[in-house]
Design a protein around this nucleic acid. Structure first.
Length: 887
RNA sequence: GGGCGGUUAACUCAGCGGGAGAGUGCUACCCUCACACGGUAGAAGCCACUGGUUCAAAUCCAGUACCGCCCACCA
């Protein structure tokens, strides 16, 4: 009569594999650019091609997938645009390492062959992270997958570059930039990570030009003195205002350099005298410009001292420092050395110490672009959630500096600029020019630098949709609905997408930016390979299943707080999945044919109640997701599915199902069970896509994927027809009564197998009618063998009692009652009530409270006082009777 | 140096002006015909500290302490 039974516990692996390919094959992830439904779109933060799925990805993509699946169920045309990032430096490093294994450097291989090698590498390994995303259940439109280096995106990059150049928003110039001597490339300020470091402050004497005592400067980087071209002091500093000389002798180099006056100098730091090295310090560079000083590059691009460093040429920058210090010491020019804590910059890719260096680079003029990007947030065109990040966003935008976009690496978008070998004319163009427009020369040499990876990422929301073509996709899906990202790339990426999107599309790239937390380890530390605390998401998936993992991530994604990940938590949610599975298993033991949806009329109280709760939960879940409160959304479902549906509803209907109840009644209840369980599956599907799909198909009748189901709130008349607040409050009273009896049983240690006789005394007729009507349910759930009604005079003597709102229940315990235990139980309860009563009464005796508090609050407190007083008197009465019995 | 966040039950965290909550763990009793990855019940908290605003503060304000993060060119 029934179909094959479900296994006793849920086994995720086979299920996940099967349904993922089913969805993909049936095109359920495909976006419909021609659809007429409202659009919902997200562009994925493109993971690096070199990437391996980590917890951050898992969280980020789970949240996106929840939103996409949810919006599909709501009937939207959804586009989730996937892709990967070419990750210039990171990828180049990986391939270089591979070459190194063969004893080769990229320079030996040559640019062209090296790039081919990178492409080959990408072909082979680049899809690893995509496959991992699929295991997470990510419902991206894979057919549209893009890569920041693919042809279309590269064209978009060139177009943006050319246009910005023509508008004067891109320029080239000699500036001091952050140089990574290992990657041998310039880095943007953002790509430098500052770290506290225990260093030294060296005090060094620069003698006067004429052999005078001279002055003492303080520096943390003595080796840079080789490139000094001045010493600066504050113009108002009395120590130096009236020096008898205006030049000093640069130690070790025997170069005469001027003493200059500049406001920048902080008189209170060190000696108030500052050495100026325009080629190796950003501040000195600025001062150098103000005073017309030249810069002398003494540290080379490989971190080795240059010829300009004289006898120190060829030394490594670190050993040079030691030698310089020793030499100064021997010449009695090192006055003293103090320990000094300061922060120094490291390359964010390879951790190498950054060397500020003078060089010729390309820059984006950021200020004008930032202006619009700020306005868009001010006016609310783009909303940042949670709001705390808005301030951070503004602060950064206000202090934005020009963005260094050129990198001296090979893997990336080569800058579309050519220089004429004959007349030196520079040509910036979309395609390689055939000849120099100025002199007609054919000897054109392309700029060797490539663009910062973030330059192409900045175009991602529109370049992936076909820009600069006016594609259908852009029309339908731009601006995107929401960008889901971690705060660590707020500036790197989000801010720059805002700037580029507004400039080129004249429209913000996203309506909302949802900034989620970082995933940390159990102790709250950042997960990193070096600390060995990395939890691999794939391991978690293998062990507990994807749905359990996703549920954990969602449940912990509270706004504004980091997530501490531990297996323990995932285990808890695996139990939840198993609970769901078994709820379905139970239901399917009884549902073995297709059932019509229920009609609200003529249903039992529990049926009306669970339907009404389903409506409330659907609303609550939708509201939570609409506000990006993922943890609330997950929590609502967890609470409902486990503690209302399983704990109460399934238990309540068991008597109906198992008893010889009328076939018609049974059928009605099964109809409700079927209906509610299926609605619940739909609600759960965005968070737990696999198990819900699997269960969905176990139901009788041929059905389409759960992905094609209708979200309960969008179903015809669902909310209106099944909302029944009366049934909810009635069920609450029944539940309270049952819990009251169970409490007595538990506290008195009455074995579950023992059925009791109950006598109930009522406060009001409504409650009496209700209990009479639901007598069977109460009897089963509270394990009663009889339930009857009594009045005051009939109160039993050898009984334990439970006082609930509107009724007192006496449980006959002839022979087994432990009077002392019952007395203690009642006393405890009375104590508790007395405490509540004290706080309530205090409020009500306060005139200010009565005068100033909101009337509804006062009313509420009064009602509460009444009910507490009543309960107290009843309990006291019962207590006195027990005391009598005890004697 | 500037900015931000955290401090609530043993643990992990919700709640953010009017009854201290959840999950895990713990205790007791149950292998009851969906589930022991389970059921029922229970114990457990001066909501970091100090002061202020308010009829009312875990919740708002100020300060203190201790953690954590971000930004920054004091050599």
């Amino acid at each position: 009569m029934s179909q094959e039974a479900l296994d006793k516990s849920y086994e995720p692996h086979e299920v996940e594999k099967r349904w993922y390919s089913f969805w993909e094959e049936h095109g359920f992830f495909d976006a419909d650019a021609k659809g007429r439904a409202p659009s919902f779109s997200i562009v994925i933060p493109p993971p690096n091609v070199t990437g391996v799925l980590h917890m951050g990805h898992a969280l980020n993509n789970t949240l996106q997938d929840i939103l996409c699946r949810y919006r599909r169920l709501r009937g939207d045309d959804v586009l989730w645009m996937p892709g990967t990032d070419h990750a210039g430096i990171a990828t180049q490093n990986v391939v270089e390492k591979k070459l190194a294994e063969q004893g080769l450097t990229r320079h030996q291989v040559g640019r062209e062959r090296f790039i081919t090698a990178v492409w080959e590498w990408r072909e082979k390994y680049g899809s690893a992270i995509i496959n991992q995303l699929k295991r997470l259940g990510a419902s991206c439109d894979w057919k549209r997958e893009r890569f920041t280096m693919d042809e279309g995106l590269s064209r978009a990059v060139r177009k943006v570059f050319v246009e910005l150049y023509r508008e004067g928003l891109i320029y080239r110039g000699n500036y001091i930039i952050n140089w990574c001597p290992r990657c041998r490339t310039a880095l943007a300020d953002l790509e430098v990570e500052h770290e506290a470091h225990d260093g030294h402050l060296y005090f060094i004497r620069y003698p006067g030009e004429g052999g005078q005592e001279g002055l003492v400067i303080a520096t943390t980087r003595p080796e840079t003195l080789l490139g000094d071209t001045a010493v600066a002091v504050h113009p108002d500093d009395d120590r130096y205002r009236y020096l008898p000389y205006d030049k000093v002798l640069l130690p070790l180099m025997n170069r005469v350099i001027p003493v200059i006056f500049d406001d920048y100098v902080d008189r209170s730091f060190g000696t108030g005298a500052l050495k100026i090295t325009p080629a190796h310090d950003p501040n000195d560079f600025e001062i150098g410009i103000r005073h017309g000083l030249t810069g002398i590059k003494v540290i080379g691009e490989d971190g080795i001292m240059t010829r300009e460093a004289g006898e120190f040429a060829g030394m490594d920058r670190f050993s040079c420092r030691e030698v310089v210090v020793k030499r100064l010491e021997s010449q009695m020019l090192l006055v003293r050395v103090e320990p000094y804590k300061h922060s120094i910059g490291h390359c964010y890719r390879c951790r190498t110490l950054i060397e500020p260096n003078l060089s010729r680079q390309w820059f984006v003029r950021a200020k004008p672009l930032a202006q619009q990007a700020m306005e868009a947030v001010t006016t609310g065109k783009t909303r940042i959630v949670p709001d705390v990040w808005t301030k951070t966003y503004f602060e950064w935008m206000e202090n934005i500096k020009d963005w260094c976009i050129s990198r001296q690496i090979w893997w990336g978008h080569q800058i579309p600029a050519w220089t004429c070998g004959i007349c030196n004319e520079m040509i910036v163009a979309l395609e390689p020019p055939a000849e120099c427009p100025s002199c007609g020369g054919k000897d054109l040499i392309q700029e060797t630098d490539v663009l910062d990876t973030w330059f192409s990422s900045a175009l991602w929301p529109f370049s992936t949709m076909g820009w600069p073509e006016e594609s259908l996709l852009l029309k339908k899906f731009y601006p995107t609905s929401v960008l889901v990202t971690g705060f660590d790339i707020l500036f790197f990426w989000v801010a720059r997408m805002m700037m580029m999107g507004l400039h080129f599309m004249k429209e913000v790239p996203f309506d909302n930016v949802y900034v989620h937390a970082l995933v940390r380890d159990e102790e709250g530390k950042k997960m990193s390979k070096s600390s060995g605390n990395v939890i691999d998401p794939i391991d978690i998936i293998e062990k507990y299943g994807t749905d359990a993992f996703r549920f954990t991530l969602a449940a912990f994604a509270a706004q504004g707080r980091d997530i501490k990940m531990s297996e323990k938590r995932v285990e808890g949610y695996r139990h939840f999945m198993n609970k769901l599975w078994n709820a379905a298993r139970f239901s399917l033991m009884h549902i073995n044919e297709e059932l019509d949806p229920p009609e609200p009329e003529g249903l039992s109280l529990p049926d009306r109640w669970i339907l009404s709760r389903t409506v409330q939960v659907s609303k609550g879940f939708a509201d939570a997701l609409d506000a990006f409160r993922f943890n609330d959304a997950a929590g609502i479902l967890y609470q409902f599915a486990w503690h209302e549906f399983c704990d109460w509803y399934l238990e309540i209907i068991k008597p109906v199902i198992y008893s010889q109840a009328e076939e018609n009644e049974k059928r009605k209840t099964l109809g409700v069970l079927n209906f509610v369980l299926n609605r619940m599956l739909i609600l759960l599907h965005p968070v737990a896509p696999f198990i819900t799909e699997e269960i969905w198909h176990k139901f009788p009748g041929k059905r389409n994927s759960i992905m094609k189901a209708v979200f309960p709130l969008d179903e015809d008349g669902f909310a209106e027809r099944f909302t029944d607040t009366e049934s909810e409050s009635q069920m609450n009273r029944i539940q309270e009564l049952i819990s009251g009896i169970r409490n007595v049983r538990g506290e008195m240690n009455i074995p579950p197998g023992l059925s009791l006789d109950a006598r109930v005394m009522f406060q009001d007729n409504g409650m009496r009618a209700l209990v009479e009507e639901q007598g069977e349910i109460i009897s089963v759930l509270a394990r009663l063998k009889s339930l009857s009604f009594i009045n005051h005079q009939e109160r039993p003597r050898k009984a334990a009692s439970a006082v609930v709102d509107g009724a007192t229940v006496y449980l006959l315990l002839e022979g087994i009652i432990d009077f002392q235990k019952e007395r203690e139980r009642l006393e405890k309860e009375i104590r508790r009530i007395a405490m509540d009563l004290a706080s309530v009464s205090q409020k009500l005796s306060n005139e200010d409270f009565l005068k100033k508090a909101a009337p509804e609050v006062v009313e509420k407190v009064k009602t509460k006082q009444d009910s507490l007083l009543e309960k107290q008197s009843k309990l006291t009465l019962n207590l006195n009777r027990i005391r009598e019995m005890e004697e």
